[in-house]
Design a protein around this nucleic acid. Structure first.
Lengths: 187, 187
DNA sequence: ACAATAACTAAACGAACGTTTAGAAAAGAT
DNA sequence: ATCTTTTCTAAACGTTCGTTTAGTTATTGT
């Protein structure tokens, strides 16, 4: 037939994801993406349609990457202790890479909170709702708690997780671990 | 001499501040500022130099506006209870305006955390350092606490405040008040 | 070997960005 | 009333943005 692609799509999406993760959507330009992904603008457009499509693909990849730590939480049988471990796992997977970039999903949530982007809002909400459901599930393992307490604690933990992700961009690992310990002290 | 200005500089800065507050620095264009401030680009440039100068002026105005709630915290004599009230005051002054825009300083802190802008970094750090010092001062009112506990609790409260500001952009007032109650439950 | 087809390169597109500038309008001083 | 000085209007500046397109290169099936 014809010539074959000289790049692996999943590989270049990963590079794009890291750039979006570090800089956000608006600040990341096609020029930067070209350089980072190592392929031409034409190739980006033919593979992903446009910048927005590439961003959605990056989000999808990120979700896939964090799904294992989320699965671990889902499978746990130790209630609150599982949630605490999930907090630690989230932070550690963020710190694995060279620079503090926080959580890609939370960064996106913040950047797009005032914009009207249905695709991205939907991706965000589905993830958050899923996380909330899992957290409630874990909290319900302690059968002594009533429904109101569980709702309150779930909301608290979701906000704490959100704040943790936002703060992990600018704070040290020690400060963040102290924070996690304090968060769960109150439960 | 000559013609007089047809606008009040403080008034137009306030309008600019609200726009920056809502949209962030990059997303707010000169065209939007023109419209919102009700004056021409020429007037903006002659009064504030450039977009960056106008942003700094907006930050300064915001700091002045929150200084009274910060002063209230500084003057308090009830230790942790003052800090808790400060959290409530911060949230309520954010919710006074029509839409959840969070804390302008925290939004800026997040947007500029990966950029290299000495002026803005300096403004941010001075504010954060000041807040941390005040919080430590309040915590020290409980003389039974040792230094290590105070440091840990201060870091915890700073992150909690940061997270609160970030979350207040997307969460309801009820969720946020539940969050504050939980943060201070065991301190 | 050759034709067909897809992937690549690089230049250009219009639009929007922050910023500047030339000229018209207006108000105080003489 | 006129001159001077400053504000204001509006058009244009050079860049950069995301996106497209014409033309070249390479690879596969026959």
């Amino acid at each position: 037939m014809a010539r074959t692609k000289q790049y692996n799509e999943t590989e270049v999406v990963e590079k794009a994801m890291n750039l979006f993760w570090k800089n956000g959507y608006e600040t990341t330009s096609m020029q930067m993406l070209e350089k980072e992904m190592g392929i031409n603008k034409f190739s980006i457009y033919s593979s992903f349609g446009n910048k927005h499509g590439l961003f959605l693909e990056s989000l999808k990849l990120y979700k896939a990457k964090v799904s294992n730590v989320l699965d671990k939480l889902k499978k746990g049988n130790n209630g609150i202790e599982d949630i605490k471990q999930f907090f630690y796992d989230s932070v550690n997977s963020s710190f694995k890479s060279d620079k503090n970039k926080g959580c890609f999903l939370t960064n996106t949530y913040n950047e797009f909170s005032e914009k009207e982007d249905e695709c991205i809002q939907k991706q965000m909400n589905s993830f958050m709702d899923n996380l909330k459901a899992i957290i409630i599930e874990k909290l319900e393992m302690d059968t002594s708690k009533n429904e109101e307490t569980i709702t309150k604690q779930a909301n608290y933990l979701l906000l704490a997780k959100h704040g943790l992700a936002a703060a992990s961009r600018v704070n040290t690992k020690e400060e963040i671990e102290d924070y996690i310990e304090m968060v769960f002290k109150n439960l």
